[in-house]
Design a protein around this nucleic acid. Structure first.
Length: 263
DNA sequence: ATGGTTGGAGCCCAA
């Protein structure tokens, strides 16, 4: 079972890319971020034609998350109970019969970017991460098999940064952000990419400017986390650079986890 | 050298 995440930076613009990549890679589940679409404008029919059901939580202009799945989606939940956040950044859904041993809970995150260390948006990012961590602790009580994935807007360590000196304590790399990610992981999740690859130089996002992709000046900020119950079932993880080379590409590449989803 | 590119809204903001 292939579970993937992709920040598409406008699904309106990138729908042809999503259709093409789904046809080529055939993920079973694809979590999208930055759809930038109101729910009424979500392309349900086009994705249905591509073989996917959709769950989505969007807004105009900014943010927006969606989960596409070849299998039916159940227990769809957007946002966090008790946290009245107008920004659409979190969407959960269950693949498989809810409560069955084989069911997998998917939580799609578009983590706050934070703009600059010390800014108001940075404070919102750290608060948002703390709320999400508490929310995921609750989710784990109900669902042992979980995949938490998305654009985390945090490079977990310096191997995930093309120029650690230049990015030292900058946004996406600061110690408080990395500590917040660590607290989330410590609930019982593993960064699946690192189960299979310990090297640096593997990135999922490259700035549009200054030919950053061509020069591989990127960060690995798009993650697929597996709960401990799924750790031994992870078969492979990859970053799909192909779509980043396509004309009018998103600035992010899809990231993929392949798991053995039997019981 | 405080740059540059993209998307979406609407004559700038977020990333």
């Amino acid at each position: 079972m292939k579970i993937a995440s992709w920040n598409v930076n406008s699904l309106n613009v990138r729908l042809p890319h999503v259709e093409r990549w789904c046809a080529e890679a055939s993920p079973d589940v694809l979590a999208l971020q930055e759809t930038k679409l109101e729910d009424a404008k979500f392309p349900v029919a086009a994705l249905e034609a591509a073989g996917y059901r959709s769950a989505f939580s969007g807004q105009k202009t900014y943010n927006g998350v969606a989960i596409l799945s070849r299998a039916p989606l159940a227990e769809v939940e957007h946002g966090i109970a008790g946290f009245d956040d107008p920004q659409r950044r979190i969407l959960g859904a269950t693949i498989g019969e809810p409560g069955s041993p084989a069911a997998i809970r998917i939580v799609n995150l578009y983590v706050v970017n934070g703009q600059a260390v010390g800014s108001e948006k940075y404070a919102y990012k750290l608060d948002w991460l703390a709320r999400v961590t508490a929310h995921l602790a609750e989710e784990l009580r109900r669902h042992r098999r979980m995949v938490v994935l998305g654009d985390f807007n945090i490079a977990p360590d310096d191997r995930d940064v093309h120029d650690p000196a230049a990015w030292h304590e900058q946004i996406l790399c600061s110690t408080p952000e990395r500590e917040a990610l660590r607290r989330l992981l410590d609930l019982g999740f593993v960064d699946s990419f690192r189960l299979f690859n310990q090297d640096g130089g593997h990135y999922s996002w490259w700035d549009y400017r200054q030919g950053a992709f061509r020069r591989n000046l990127g960060l690995r900020i798009d993650l697929v986390l597996a709960s401990e119950a799924l750790r031994a079932r992870c078969r492979g993880a990859s970053i799909e650079r192909g779509p980043r080379t396509w004309e009018r590409a998103s600035d992010h590449a899809p990231v993929v986890l392949d798991i053995d989803d039997g019981i």
